[in-house]
Simulated assay, not measured.
Amino acid sequence: MGALLWLLVIPVGIAVAVVLRAVLPPSFAPGVEAVPLVVGVLIGVGFADTEWLTRSRIVHVQALHPDGLVLPARSNLRSDEFFEHVVRVPLSQMGWAYAVAADDSGLSVYRGTTQPERVLLVPWPHVLNVSVAVVSAAPDLGPFDYVDPALTVTVATSAHPVEFAFPVLKTPGPYQRGRVLEATRDEIWRRRQAALGLDVSAPARSFASPGRRILLPGVSSVAFWRAIRMLGWLGPVGLVAFLVVRFAPVPEGLRDLWMLPLGLLLLSSLGSLVLAILASRRGNAEASAGYTLSRTGDSRLDQVDPVSGYVIRQAGEMQLSRDAERAEIARVRALA
């Protein structure tokens, strides 16, 4: 079904081409309407093929682990280093995507699609922790570099523990992705505890007085992301308003105001881009200061309440669930 959804990008490109032809005068850049059509075809076919390969890989790996949890994963900087230096598998052989399976034997990593090959098996006693972190594709994160939440598995080796981080594909959206990763993290940890005969419930949290950090002055990264979500509503509103004003039977005076909805659409796009750059830079500054405000932030940093500055999760602990975060925030704010 996912591959078919991506093919819908093609008629979207056709619709954009029709709108451009209707809005622009015939003398303006003849043939410009073909650009969104070609782009729509390339994006639709390309992503549909990628979706099909991902689904095919999962089906074949699931056949090898009928009772296991199989996750489609994508390569990133940290996983590339792990495979190259720890597993000793060349990056050219791993590809850009692979599969991770969790069953009674441990965590397995497979490459390939129709004939998957296992390149790594980590027995459960060697899995020390499972958390959610943010990973990137570049060693020095710039304002336009892509970052993505990922599952991080701490693996015991003969020398010292190492971390294997992998973004999980096929999640419902950027604002629900953290919730999906939390549930996946908890399921992996439950399987690990059950296989080792340990308590599958999470350890009780201490309710001692928490530590407190001095927050950096200025607007926090949480506030930037909240503004991005609010600004994101202007885009669909502007698009719908433009289509109504331009093509619906409205009074002639309103038809001349078609630039205003386009202005809302432009404001939403450019405003979200600028705010995302500021949020990324602010998040990097907060990490440099030794803390994170994000529930799915780096588990090696303290998670801090953005209002009171109290630590609600200490560095090294597993990320909080959404409900646990609300409870911790309510508790520390009562102390402020």
Rank of each mutant, 00 (worst) to 15 (best):
V304G: 05
S288N: 14
Y110T: 15
T114V: 09
V332S: 11
A150D: 06
G44C: 04
W225E: 07
D323M: 06
Y291D: 13
V32K: 04
V222G: 07
V222L: 13
G178M: 00
Q303V: 01
A315F: 05
V38H: 00
V332M: 12
D103N: 05
R177P: 00
R111F: 09
E182R: 05
V86T: 14
R295V: 11
L71Y: 08
P172D: 03
R226V: 04
R74C: 03
A17P: 08
F224G: 03
R300G: 11
D256G: 06
F224D: 07
I329P: 01
A17M: 07
R190L: 06
G142D: 13
V89F: 01
L301W: 09
A223I: 10
R281D: 02
V23C: 04
S108W: 15
L37I: 14
V130G: 00
A327F: 10
S108T: 13
R229I: 13
L270T: 12
E84F: 09
W189M: 08
L260K: 00
R322E: 11
V87S: 13
R212E: 11
I277L: 04
G142K: 01
F83K: 03
P210S: 12
L42F: 11
Q314C: 05
V19L: 03
V89G: 00
V244T: 03
D49R: 13
E328C: 03
E252W: 09
K170W: 02
G297E: 00
G290V: 06
A156L: 13
R88T: 14
R333G: 15
G46P: 07
W258F: 11
V168F: 01
D305G: 13
V162K: 12
V45D: 01
